[in-house]
Design a protein around this nucleic acid. Sequence first.
DNA 1: CGGATCGAC
DNA 2: CTATGTCGATCCG
Length: 807
Amino acid sequence: MMQLKEKITSQQLLKAQLQVDKLVMELEQSRDLSCTIVHIDMDAFYAAVEMRDNPELKEKPIAVGSMSMLSTSNYHARRFGVRAAMPGFIAKKLCPHLTIVPLNFEKYGQVSKEVRKILAQYDPDFMPVGLDEAYLNITDYLEERQNWPEDKRKYFYKTDNITENGKQDLNAPDELKLNEDALSSSLMLFEDNTSLAEEQPITTTHLHAEEQRDQQLLNSVVFGTSAEEVVKEIRFRIEQKTRLTASAGIAPNTMLAKMCSDQNKPNGQFRIPPDRQAVMDFVKDLPIRKVPGIGKVTEKLLKALGILTCSELYQQRAPISLLFSETSWRNFLDISLGLGSTHLEKDGERKSMSTERTFGEINTAEDQYDLCQELCKDLAQDLQKEGLKGKTVTLKLKNVNFEVKTRAFTVLCPVSTEEEIFAVAKELLRTEIDSVAPHPLRLRLMGVRVSGFLNEEDKKYQQRSITNFLKQGRGTTVLRLQPGKSNEDHFTKPPETSPRESFFDKKRAARQNTNQEPFINEAVDKQNLYGMKSSVNPMAETGPAIGSKNSNEVKSLTCPVCFEEQRSSSLEALNRHIDECLNKTLVKEKTVTSKSADSRENTHNLSLYIKHKTTDTDTKNKMNTLMDVGHPSNVSDNSISNSTEAFAIVPSKSRAEKEHSLSSDTSSYLYLDQNVSSKIPLENAGHYEKSECVQETKSYSSIAIQDDILVCPICNLEQKTTDLAVFNRHVDVCLNKGIIQKLTEERVCLLKNHITENSKRIGSLDKAPQSMNPTTGTKRSGLIPLQSTSKKAKTCNSSHTIETFFK
DNA sequence: CGGATCGAC
DNA sequence: CTATGTCGATCCG
């Protein structure tokens, strides 16, 4: 993209600038600040629930999840660098005293329901996001509330609830403060009130009138009519009801509201007033990574173009409009202007359903088929719960090198039962197994997804067609697809009866007489896949099942669609031909994508780059170099200084400091195995991603370092530093998959052997198994090529990269 | 449509 | 020993 950017002429840029700015004008004109959108976000939700329900966990560092994956952690644990999406066993190394609590989704769901009940009173159409977040549009509610008498905005609470021994949340003092603030600002009028809020914990009936009055005076709070007051009230009620705290953001649109809720987390809130300047001020120095929808990849992409903040995003709007797709750059423009959705669209119908499982290596075909069937079974159950049938079945595979692959197939007749799904998934799996034969597929994950659900129109059509179909007395073909029959029957056997011989049948019969070479087994199955496409639909005008018939009876490499005999004996080629025939297009020979010169070029650059860092040929040093590439101690002090909040082994910060580091801190991991990596300036390598845990640490002080020697739990190498913050950053870099992910499997063992033996030449690493399929390293991100000549790296075999690297 | 990726929780 | 599961959106060919 940087190259493309270079090639933009000033002419083009000028034109783009004019066009974009015209749009900016329009956008500015239609800027809508009239809505009040609220984003509510429960603080460390799962962990908070677990702590609430088990006081023993209160003072301990805890995380919720399993040894293999954590969903969230409490603040205690976050100080050790333990955070969401981290494997539990690594968290244990970072924090040996960590208590890992298993997930209890039912409970979280219950709590979430309670919270939602409250939220619904402020916006019946509020939009939940997961269990712990929600957007509310309180515009209408606010207006109505202006005229409310105080008693309608008055809530009672039990002080005990907050100060009770051992019961209070870590953040309770803040909440108490909030309550006190609210109390002091309220008039505290007492009125006998029949419409008390449900969270009123005091039963008034047993008390004398005066006592009752005193009691309630002490423990009541009146919230105002402003947006802030409403949100305080919401958070107050949530805490009263669940003993859990929430953070909130208030802004004129959802994008801003979401970012606001992050601002004063935990247990705080922040508002951007409905004022253009206020919005622009907020957005000005905002790191783009904070924006919902901009993730790691997009951040890096924009960073390469010199864009770190929203202002820079705006400044570069013209070139951006030339480099990105329409949807992408329009979105970027909205972001840089602080524009976002002002209404909450309720989520539509489900579009897919899937299930997947991670496991220790499974490499025998038999086990893989069994597993696949099990997944289909589970998925079928889920589908049936919602009465869904879908036309596309997708198989997802991840091998032991973490390379993910999906393979999909669409049938004309929607499927929902285990047998139906498995029939398709099995073929997809078979194709994959065959594609690497005689090597086994070495899987660590398998998943099955069904999508392409029928919409209402489809259903009607389906119904009508079936009716017509049955009227015509051709039910036998339909029955082929009914549950109860084995999957084999569905796709590999011809219909028992063929009421009417079609054109295709005749053709087929004619061909049969020529008696040619039989298909090998897999060929039959692959052909079946194509057969399904054209034959399974009982409504097909062509009549019964050409594919099904062909599958058992055709004995030559003849296209079942055009009936031309195919020259190539390659099944792949035949299948491609059939596919093209089905699509009524010409057969195009796909060229097999080879590992392109580009990918080598990249690795070449990389090794050159590393070379200057290591003159020593000792293997262990190379290891260290590899692990330390992203280590801050290798980079300029300057880049570190902005990052010292990592994992927050730091005392509380003032607001100003915090804001400063927020704006200057940007994430950038060093990816050694990706195309751009060699282009990232070294001085940026020490930056790291600022995660939620960093922002949520304000009330904690620093902790002591217990050990003299810090050993990274991921790369297992001793770290030179004794600074826990620096160490944590190293772990973060290690964790961040770019480097280590590809090494965690057998390669690490190889390396270790090399280190201990210290004799073999490193080049032998090149002899790593070739069985794995190269993954395509193509990066897209809506890039519009200005010149079609730039056929960039189509494939990038990451393991190869690493091998070259070591070499 | 199939496949790959990104992003979110 | 141990690196999730699920879903929607987008882009490309």
